[in-house]
Amino acid sequence: MKKLFERLYNGIVKENPIFTQVIGMCPTLAVTTSVGNAIGMGLATTVVLICSNAAISLVRKFIPSSIRIPSFIVIIASFVTMIELLLEAYIPALYSSLGIFLPLIVVNCLILARAEAYASKNNVISSIFDGLGMGLGFTLALTVLGAVRELLGTGKILNIAIMPASYQPAIIMILAPGAFFVLGILMALLNVYRSKKVAR
C-alpha cells in the first residue's frame, strides 16, 4: 500500500513529468491556451497512460529487450486508436471537444518514457499507480500553465471573468511565445524554491 502512495507522490510532485523531467513538451506548450483544454488533454493522457502501463507490464516478460521500443509504440498507438473510436461512437460530445488532442497522445513521449522506465520492469498494480501518478502530475502542471496563460491572455478562467474590466488582455500569453514565457518562469521559481530547500 505504501509503495502505491509513493508512486502517486512520485508522479505528482517528486518526478513531475513537466517541471522535473521536462518531457512531453510538445502537447504541453501547444494545448495550454486555456484551463479547459489543459484538463481535457491531461485526463485523456492519464487514461491512456494507465491502460498502456498496465498492458505493457502484463506482457513485459514476453517482449525481448531488443524489440521493446517498437512493441511499446504499437501497443500505445493501438490503445489510443481504440479509445478514439469508442469515444467517437459513444461519447461524441467529449470526442469533439478533445479534437486533435487524442491523436497527439500517441506522440507524447511521456507515455513511452513510463513504459520504458517503469512498466517494463514492475508488476501490473504498481505500474497502474505509476501511470495514475504521472498522469495526474501531468494534468496538474498543464492546468497551472493553462490557468496562468488564460488569465493573463484573456482575463478569464473557464470563461468566467476574473480580472477587472479595465484589464487589457495580453494576447501574446495565449500565443505560442506565451507558453515558453510561462513555462520558463514557473520552472525558474520552482528551482529557486528547491535550491533553498536543499540549502536549509
Binding site: 506482457v59 514476453f62 517482449i63 525481448p64 531488443s66 524489440i67 517498437p70 512493441s71 504499437v74 501497443i75 498507438a77 493501438s78 486508436t81 481504440m82 473510436l85 469508442l86 467517437e88 461512437a89 459513444y90
Partner: peptide, 29 residues
C-alpha cells in the same frame, strides 16, 4: 527470425483488436 516473429505477433494482435473495435463502432459513428 525469432524477434521478427514476436514483433509480427504483437502487431497482428494489436491490429486485430483495433480492427475489431473499428468494426463494432463503425455503425454508431
Amino acid at each position: 527470425a525469432k524477434l521478427g516473429g514476436i514483433l509480427f505477433l504483437i502487431a497482428a494482435i494489436c491490429a486485430g483488436l483495433v480492427g475489431f473495435v473499428n468494426e463494432i463502432t463503425k455503425e454508431p459513428i
